[in-house]
Design a protein around this nucleic acid. Structure first.
Lengths: 363, 363
DNA sequence: CTGTTAGCGCATTCAT
DNA sequence: ATGAATGCGCTAACAG
């Protein structure tokens, strides 16, 4: 019923092996023979049987990209960039083999689903896997991940981290691109402090996530350095920090809570831009103006942040560039950084949503 | 080196066939035997060889979800919803077979890449394919798509459309969920007209896309019904319409162009919410206020639209529900609508970004 | 440069 | 309810 490689071989009057060589292009074949084979492929509308090919070759052309939340442009931008480096030449052909199939898998932030997806990709004998976004800090899960990644690597799957801190013993991970979340968080809060803010509310991401912790640590480091809090996490820190998911609703609700706890806050920092947008809505709903009464800041610099009113002060992460680089690393078309680890700089973007607090002036 | 089914069989002291039956669960196996097999699976850390399994069974557990732009939440929301219905039980196990691997493929809006991805999924013998978003109206591409989808369907791949109009002769497509873009566009413009607007600029999406055309047709139908334009596309229509990609930058630039062409416009409609956000920025940059001087409206009601200032009047599409339903249709866990086609309602959301034009009052 | 041969690991007959 | 045998379609030696 379905056309096989043998059918193509018969029509082109060559052996199946020759057809295979033409399609995979990894072997010298006479030009005229190649032509004949390709014509037969087109004539018969032949499509390579991926499973058979993968079985025989003991590797597949599948590349998995794991994301925490596919509806969040933070991940969409990275995933799209990675995919554009990995997959699909875009000339519509794909008659032959060799094209990678870059696919995005949405874990929804669930550690179980993360592991399950890795198993599924292992089952498919994936050529590479890119893991984006922060990791869960639960020791049991980290151990399970390390074990799973080790097995994947042993089976020949190349593993790349993008926006995720490297594992302690990362024999498995070929390369890790990690964002300077701590530095970005610190510079952002330093900016607010230099404007004169002293009581700064922080709407953090979910607990036990590396991204959450690093951004918060940067914030607290800046506060400490300015003598605004103790050296350890103090009750004061806790009172001005609320955790929640990385979405606008969390920013909205946490900000209402912060304003209730401490009406004297003059600035709210969101763990990311979506949170900051929700925070802005809450601030306004309380009859306060941005930035005159309360400054608001975010993190990531997603495309919509510049269109917020007023434009959102935030920390820019080069998501597209990082994703593209991760894609090239997964393909093996870029040499890994020394030690397999590269830290990607986070740049402070000062815009209209932050200003000196009422009746104050910059330091 | 790598553990195979035969290894599991040896350890469990059963035949390979029995192990296969346990893993696929489609066959009666004694409880004690099953236990023994599953224990051996865990002991050996066995992972099914997907390619071998797919080759023997002539079908795979891969499900593809095609999107135009993975960085756009419009697609991310639908894809995430579909994926949550299709894949990954989330209990972390996935020891056995039967789990579907739902993966998202980013075409970037390119018709060639769309076809290439379909070929790649065909090569993998995908169990199902979900195509989201509008289609290109180029006849050559449509013919190529119809042919490709036909071949996929013949090979046993279930095909579902989500937010895409059905094909003329859709034997191949199991089900098509299509948004009422025309109706939504019409109701939105009717709303503006009822507020008293007469000169309404329209920032459309890219040419030759069904979504673009349908939304624009709805807009023009409302204009015509109000006697604000001729029955056909008139020069006037053209003068107040600018096409561009579905992003904020397009909205920004097109709006500057519209304000230059016709300073008397009192309202700008964006083809989607991102475009509307860019339009808002442009309007403000010209020193005009929203909605006092110029009303702005969008389409889709993405999560950030309610946080715009003022909150964006738009047309709500139930993206999550549609994606989830498409996922179930792809899995075969929901019966297709009569005729295989269902139209999904678009709901007008009136918010603060639209108001009567200066010195006017509602009709 | 090309043909021949022998599995890859599993699902599925058919037996029992 | 379980075991034995066959072949899915292709790639990768190995010859020539």
């Amino acid at each position: 019923m379905t056309v096989t490689l043998a059918d193509v071989a018969a029509r082109a009057r060559v052996s199946p092996a020759t057809v295979s060589r033409v399609l995979n292009g990894n072997y010298p074949v006479a030009a005229t023979t190649r032509e004949r084979v390709l014509r037969a492929v087109d004539d018969l509308d032949y499509v390579l049987n991926g499973p058979a090919s993968s079985l025989a070759a003991a590797t597949s052309d599948l590349v998995g990209i794991l994301v925490n939340d596919i509806a969040d442009p933070f991940f969409g931008i990275m995933a799209g960039a990675a995919q554009s480096e990995i997959g699909v030449p875009g000339d519509g052909t794909a008659r032959a083999g060799g094209e990678k199939l870059a696919v995005v898998c949405n874990t929804g932030g669930s550690p179980e689903r993360e592991l399950t997806y890795l198993t599924l990709l292992q089952r498919q004998r994936a050529a590479a896997v890119v893991l984006t976004g922060g990791a869960l800090e639960d020791p049991a899960h980290q151990a399970a991940m390390a074990a799973k990644l080790g097995r994947l690597a042993d089976a020949g799957t190349r593993i790349v981290f993008c926006g995720r801190p490297p594992l302690p013993e990362n024999d498995a991970v070929a390369a890790a691109l990690t964002f300077d979340n701590r530095g970005g968080g610190r510079r952002l809060t330093e900016h607010l402090i230099s404007l004169g803010h002293r009581r700064i509310g922080y709407v953090a991401g979910p607990q036990e996530r590396t991204t959450t912790r690093h951004r918060l640590e940067g914030h607290r480091a800046a506060m400490r350095a300015a003598g605004l809090t103790g050296t350890a996490v103090s009750p004061e820190d806790d009172r001005l920090t609320v955790h929640g998911p990385y979405d606008r609703r969390s920013g909205y609700e946490a900000t209402l809570e912060l304003l209730r706890r401490e009406p004297g806050v003059t600035a709210i920092v969101g763990a990311n831009d979506s949170v900051a947008l929700g925070a802005s809505a809450a601030v306004r709903e309380q009859g306060l103006r941005i930035p005159e009464d309360v400054s608001v800041a975010g993190f990531d610099d997603l495309p919509f942040s510049v269109d917020a009113v007023p434009a959102l002060t935030t920390v820019r992460l080069p998501l597209y560039e990082a994703g593209a680089r991760a894609g090239r690393l997964a393909m093996g078309t870029e040499t890994p950084p020394p030690g397999g680890i590269a830290t990607i700089r986070a740049e402070l973007m000062v815009r209209g949503s932050t200003a000196p607090p009422r009746g104050d002036r910059p330091a």
